[in-house]
Design a protein around this nucleic acid. Sequence first.
DNA 1: CACGGAATGGATCGAGCAATCCATTCCGCT
DNA 2: AGCGGAATGGATTGCTCGATCCATTCCGTG
Lengths: 207, 207
Amino acid sequence: MSTTSPSSRPLTRKGQETRQRIVDAAADLIFQQGVAHTTIEDVRAAADVSSSQLYHYFDDKPALVRAVVDHQADTMVGGQETFDFSTVDGLRAWRDFVIAGQREHHCIGGCPIGSLGGQLAETDPDARVHVAEGFKRWEAEIQSGLRAMQARGELTPDTDPDTLALALLGALQGGLLLTQVKRDTKPLEAALDAMIELVARLSGSSK
Amino acid sequence: MSTTSPSSRPLTRKGQETRQRIVDAAADLIFQQGVAHTTIEDVRAAADVSSSQLYHYFDDKPALVRAVVDHQADTMVGGQETFDFSTVDGLRAWRDFVIAGQREHHCIGGCPIGSLGGQLAETDPDARVHVAEGFKRWEAEIQSGLRAMQARGELTPDTDPDTLALALLGALQGGLLLTQVKRDTKPLEAALDAMIELVARLSGSSK
DNA sequence: CACGGAATGGATCGAGCAATCCATTCCGCT
DNA sequence: AGCGGAATGGATTGCTCGATCCATTCCGTG
């Protein structure tokens, strides 16, 4: 995706590795403690680089954050494409996967992209756009699944799969937020189950 | 609610007014620019008080933030109780109200409580609990509506109104987050419409 | 094998900001 | 009146943290 480097400076193999190490470390730290509480010094130490390297690969902190946003979007979207959004069973499998992930991490961190969105939307317009684009890519995954479902005639013709995809993503985000705040997976389960129940009713007509 | 003042110091009438002015100003600023980007100096200027007053009424910044969380929860829960969550029409009216609100504010800020949750969940454990309690009060409003709906026999007996309330709140939160990030009310509309559609199907059986 | 740009190290600067401190003024109560 | 605690003002401090700077080392290329 977008590069977010100082005027697209040429990068050697080693340079790319270092850059990647920085982004990875920053992504981890930011996921754990948020953007504001993650300092350049934290990232520097975690990535085991010098501070000048950081400014060699990124113009400033916002630029690094943008790179983290893109990185998280890549990770997130990439991690979902093994699931089949074109069947109700596929959706349920995805649901189980997401919930298991939250339980594993003790409901900490929320959504890697969504939480960034909440933190950056009003403070970094540029980053907000990156988050929005990340969500758009994610939506596209779900959309294609639901469209396939409809093409197979398993979704009533008068439902818009794109809108439904948006609603599904919304339920996921809200469920993750509530789960993060409450440290309990119930909200996430409730939101996803409800949404999938609707999809089931829109496809199989009855229960 | 909780007081969050320096060891519950006695407050005169004037003192309460000043304290309230500080919380109001802080809530506004934080809503617009987030917790991290709102400085004590910002609040001081906006509330037209001296810095010592701030520390007279609040131990430190986190304490002020907690007061803001409670204040937003009060506002939010208070603002919802005019709506009737016990009928599908009532839910639709609420939906219209929320969406109109977002449109009015150009989709800026997201949910006054939810966005605080996302910003504070991993950095301020105490604040996280306050946000969780705010959500709990909010849930209670929705729950009582759905319970009434079920008591009237307009909701299938095998649906748990509390879980449904959680899902509804989740859809709202996720819809608001996506709407905030995309600067477009469509996600919020999609999420709420989908959820209300489910409620409708769980109550009226058809359509 | 040397030339140059990329990569790295680390010291340092300087602004922003939370928090403290010491007065001084206000005001309710007896 | 006048005592005492609350309320207010504003200067100041101390530190965190983003960002800059100047070397020095690495390494691919001609």
